[in-house]
Simulated assay, not measured.
Amino acid sequence: MPATHLIDRGVIRVSGEDARDFLQNIVTNDMDAVTPDQAGYGALLTPQGKIICDFLVVAVPEGEGGGFLLDTPLLQTADLMKRLKLYKLRARVALDDLTEATAVIASCDGAALPEEAGLVYVDPRLPGLGQRAMTDRDGAAEIATASADAWHASRIALGVPEGGRDFTYGDAFPHEALLDQLGGVSFKKGCYIGQEVVSRMQHRGTARTRVVPIVFVDGIAAETGSDATAGGKALGRIGSGANGRALALLRLDRVADALAAGEPLLGGGLAFSLAKPDFIRFPFPGEAGFGAAA
């Protein structure tokens, strides 16, 4: 059971009698579905619909204090705290940054973590991501002995993007970062910040840019940040990679044009092809229905 300490993750606690309603009114996911037995995945957006921060949401059992813990990207934690405080107003909510004392660990192979790992929860995005846990930082090294590279290799193989590596916070829409494919957006709940933009993209099918998994023909992944091109025209950017695979933020309509013209897709000068995972429901270039909705 290899597990790793994700040192690039922070933890925020949202507690108090209004905690659930407070989050329900501002985040993209449906908080009514988040229970001690079922974590959630969502994001806080700008009013223009771009991702400020995405996170996993874990409900704490009432016997352990109640409220919710947000498993967040470390570099976004301070900004997320600032935004949450801004939206708090008169809500009966307490906000605490627990990052200094709390570690997030994750299974690298989808296997279960031991009960002594702390507050254990299943990653709600994909079953293959396995379990995660929040535990005392001082004891994390005893449980998590694998390198972070092992976890990222697993994530990349599954096709799951990560902010700061595969898309840019403050610049990407939820559809571009696949939140709509990974259960990170509810299209049935009420209003939340940025909801009008996200709903419009969903109903009009205007998400032309997406993070998608790719496979390099020669088995060597291009460096993160390399340009993706075809026929000398820009397609997008290569994100995180491992074992000859990567994630790339691409204009899929331009990819379709390149494929139709017989032009090779290149990342950092290395040829690649798209690799569609089972969880992605929108059509890829070359599939029936592509262009009707991205």
Rank of each mutant, 00 (worst) to 15 (best):
L23T: 12
L23Y: 02
Q24H: 15
Q24P: 08
N25I: 10
N25V: 12
N25T: 15
D30Y: 13
D30F: 14
D30A: 14
M31C: 03
D32W: 07
A33F: 11
A33H: 08
V34Q: 01
P36M: 03
D37N: 09
A39M: 01
A39Y: 02
A39F: 02
A39R: 01
G40M: 02
A43Y: 10
A43V: 13
L45W: 11
L45A: 02
T46M: 11
T46H: 11
Q48M: 12
G49F: 09
K50S: 08
I51K: 02
I52Y: 06
I52T: 05
C53P: 07
C53E: 07
C53H: 00
D54V: 11
D54K: 04
D54T: 08
L56C: 08
L56Q: 09
V57G: 02
V58I: 15
A59N: 06
A59D: 01
A59H: 10
V60T: 06
P61H: 05
P61V: 14
E62H: 12
E62D: 15
E62W: 12
G63T: 15
G63I: 12
E64P: 06
G65A: 06
G66C: 09
G66S: 01
G67D: 02
F68L: 07
L69V: 07
L70T: 05
D71V: 11
T72R: 01
T72Y: 04
T72I: 15
T72V: 15
T72K: 07
P73V: 10
P73Q: 00
L74M: 10
L74I: 03
L75A: 14
L75W: 10
Q76W: 00
T77V: 11
T77S: 09
A78H: 13
D79F: 07
M81P: 00
K82I: 09
R83N: 14
R83L: 13
